[in-house]
């Protein structure tokens, strides 16, 4: 079903590939494209689900590139890199050459600290390449974790601290709940940075975390994301639909903000 006929929607939180701990469906490029067409998504920022658990992430990135190259203009690609594994500098250069648009980090899977020197070097390199740095707060809900899955998540505070340590970088926080009173210093800290938040774990009603984001962080910092194919896509659309905001704000969240963040990448890979 198409929720919005008149918004250019960009999904900044999508995946292609397999997940070791649960079977996914519609998780190849054709499946994700099918979802995008069904829901009226113009473009998706996709990461390799395989790369999260591969020892050598680059194998997942290469596979992601091969899968998506036949759909020019529909994808922006996250390069999943591990700064604690050798050769990430070459892998970053390779991904840049292939037209990847952003860096994706999973410190809780790859065994390093987001605020440590290894990650710092990679974040600086990404910033130098003009890439935003995307960090999911988690991949799956810890309460249903497979017995061999990680026991760690990433807090909002850790991510903000990392962004503060790299003020020249653009940070995109996905799969997180950002919730704080209006007068909490967290908001000012995030506003002082080039810091964006994706909404798939927050609600526009009842506790109204998305509403608080609009008011305290600013509508220009909020990004639409589904989490597909890990998560059902409709909830993200409903969050935008029921948000108490005008169409200008909804347009920003639905896609205009993402275009500004990611639109400078993808120079060789289907940037239409």
């Amino acid at each position: 079903m198409t929720y919005f006929e008149d918004l250019n929607i960009i999904d900044v939180n999508a995946f292609i590939g397999n997940w070791a701990f649960r079977r996914l469906r519609h998780n190849d490029a054709a499946g994700v494209l099918g979802m995008m067409d069904d829901f009226g998504i113009e473009r998706a920022c996709v990461a390799s689900a395989d790369a999260i658990l591969y020892r050598d992430c680059q194998a997942g990135n290469e596979k992601l590139y091969e899968e998506t190259r036949l759909a020019p203009g529909r994808f922006w690609l996250y390069a999943t890199l591990n700064p604690a594994y050798p050769g990430w500098e070459r892998d970053l250069a390779r991904c840049a050459d292939l037209g990847f648009s952003a860096l994706r980090l999973y410190p809780y899977y790859h065994g390093y600290a987001l605020n440590g020197p290894e990650a710092g070097a990679l974040i600086d390199a990404a910033a130098a390449a003009g890439w935003p740095v995307s960090v999911p707060g988690r991949v799956v809900d810890m309460r249903q974790r497979h017995w061999m899955d990680t026991t760690e998540n990433l807090s909002v505070e850790e991510t903000v601290e990392a962004a503060e340590a790299h003020p020249g970088a653009t940070f995109v926080l996905t799969e997180s709940i950002v919730s704080a009173p209006p007068d909490d210093p967290l908001w000012a800290r995030m506003r002082a940075l080039d810091f964006y938040v994706e909404i798939s774990r927050m609600s526009s009603v009842l506790r109204k975390e998305t509403q608080a984001l609009v008011e305290s962080l600013g509508p220009e910092r909020i990004l639409f994301g589904t989490g597909f194919p890990f998560k059902a896509p409709s909830p993200a659309f409903l969050k935008v639909q029921v948000l108490d905001a005008d169409e200008t704000v909804k347009s920003q969240i639905a896609g205009l903000n993402a275009r500004k963040v990611f639109g400078n990448g993808g120079r060789k890979h289907g940037d239409g």
Binding site: R25, H26, D141, S203, S204, V205, R207, P229, K231, P235
Partner: peptide, 29 residues
């Protein structure tokens, strides 16, 4: 938890008549 395929898998396992809509405060999800 709004895992894609979860509701379908419930129907496959139990049949559609044993599934009841609820939110428990997860509204859009």
């Amino acid at each position: 938890v709004i895992d894609e395929w979860m509701v379908d898998r419930c129907v496959e396992a139990l049949g559609v008549d044993r599934l009841l809509f609820a939110t428990d405060m997860t509204m859009e999800g």
